[in-house]
Amino acid sequence: MGALLGVLPFFAYTTIFLGIPTLIVVVGAFVDGNGQPTLGNLSALAQPQIVSAFVHSVVLSAVTAVLGASFGALLAYAVSTAREGSLMRRLVASACGVLAQFGGVTLAFAFIATFSSQGFLTLWLKKYGIDLAGSNWLYDPYKGLVLVYTYFQIPLMLIVFLPAVEGLRPQWREATESLGGSTWNYWRHVGGPILAPSFIGAMLLLFTNAFSAYATAYALISQGSPIIPLQIGGTLSSEVILGQENIGKAMALGMVAIVAVVMTLYVVLQRRTTKWLGS
């Protein structure tokens, strides 16, 4: 019993700042403005702008997870061929550490400086007759946001995937070669299957990372709320419409549900891959 006292502070803290907030979201999603139980908040999720925000968010996160994972894995492999402790490795790792966390406002401003109507690239391309500013593509969730998000997805992939790539032993490659295997054979039958579970795991982490990203889109987009985190943020700041707050909780519950589906998928997939690898 005395031993349990030692972990009491940790459980008390996480209950207050993690358990209770989660409970508030779950319960609030099923309660109306007067505290009466209702399913109205959930049916409010069928509003066209909320549905389209969910669709935008899921597609945006999936596309940038695949893009970020592919390029990030390529970068991680390239960096892993450098000597451990070399300057290139340190530079890339530190830069990725900053870029993965400094997404948000800094990234949005960087994009304004680059692609807005007065941006560096826009003005530069204008000289050659190419017009970037016209179509407002930067604020489109499927064009501009995809490009913006890859700027924090690739660095995050490097951070989470580099340890896995470092686990590949040169001896495996040599063994493949001494058996007459080509580079393609090595990746198809040795390197690929070994990295597959961590690659998929990292990709799903990237999905949830993009799915929950709020700051970048908030700082970049001044009109409308095309993705779900912005919709939820909107319900928090506008207290005019009664019951709107609980629709926010229903949307939050929807986000958690989607992440939970992704995580379940991950567990199932990983069980499969370990079975394949084991046989």
């Binding site: 907030p21 939820i232 958690v256």
Partner: peptide, 29 residues
């Protein structure tokens, strides 16, 4: 002293990865 609760502590610590910050904000208000 408590190897039995290690999985629980790990689960709680990794939980915020699956709860978006914006969702946490809603519940934290």
């Amino acid at each position: 002293r408590l190897p039995g609760v290690r999985r629980l502590v790990e689960f709680i610590c990794l939980l915020p990865l699956t709860i978006p910050a914006i969702v946490l904000v809603v519940g934290l208000a």
